[in-house]
Design a protein around this nucleic acid. Sequence first.
DNA 1: CAATTGTATTAAGACTACTAATACATTATG
DNA 2: CATAATGTATTAGTAGTCTTAATACAATTG
Lengths: 141, 141
Amino acid sequence: MALWIQILPGSSEPIYVQVAEQISKAIARGELASGDKLPAVRKLAAELVINPNTVARAYRRLEQAGLVTTKTGSGTFVSDPKLRRTDAADINMLTERMDTLITRGLNLGLKAQDLISLFERRLAKFGNKSKKQEDRKKRNE
Amino acid sequence: MALWIQILPGSSEPIYVQVAEQISKAIARGELASGDKLPAVRKLAAELVINPNTVARAYRRLEQAGLVTTKTGSGTFVSDPKLRRTDAADINMLTERMDTLITRGLNLGLKAQDLISLFERRLAKFGNKSKKQEDRKKRNE
DNA sequence: CAATTGTATTAAGACTACTAATACATTATG
DNA sequence: CATAATGTATTAGTAGTCTTAATACAATTG
């Protein structure tokens, strides 16, 4: 199933952010489950035609976020969601981002109800993990 | 009532973004209503002890977002919400930001229901315009 | 006309971000 | 143990961004 990751040429977002972000989303959606191995930095770098350091940086970012665990020599793996800390500072950051988002929405003329609807619709797209994914997770434990 | 705007010394956000963002929020909350005049760029710059160009840049940003209208010689004014375009591209941008936000939340271990609750709570803080603010708006029409 | 307001241009300095090249350290494999 | 595979560290250079500054210009107000 190759690689879903795709870097946009014209984007203002740094490449390492794009890579990290897309992997984050895959994890949030359950497409990548606990224990799954990410591609080797050199391999992914070759596929995306970017520098291995850039991929490494993306992985470091994911590790800082607590999404993956890294073992030199063996690889980078999606970490167990149960072990992810939910820091108060993280919640604050999230709340601030939310306020900014709400500000934009309201200033675009959307009503509160519109925003809630949109939010729920987008949230629904991050559907709960499928049975198959849960099974895959179990195998890796 | 002086100036609510405050620039944080250690912030990684550019000053002009901070200024624009805070004014945006004031507008979204209804603290600044249609027709209200923003401080003159030179005046605000003096109060914040920053360069007038930096304030001008913030105002330009707000104008691009359609939040204010500018008339050289007279000033910068909060524009009528009814006249604000809601471009499809804007909605797409908002949706993308929302997805990113949801990704972060889920990856912090929050459940869908937690996210919705938080979202609604934050949204409530942008309470609907008060009677007084509606009146002020009327006077300026 | 004089004052006020926003705009445009140019430049310089400081700082950060990004990517790259290369060498190093650790672990897995046979 | 030897080799391959994997992530890490260091260094460097290029490019871009941000802010300030100094002026000059344009449009509106009174």
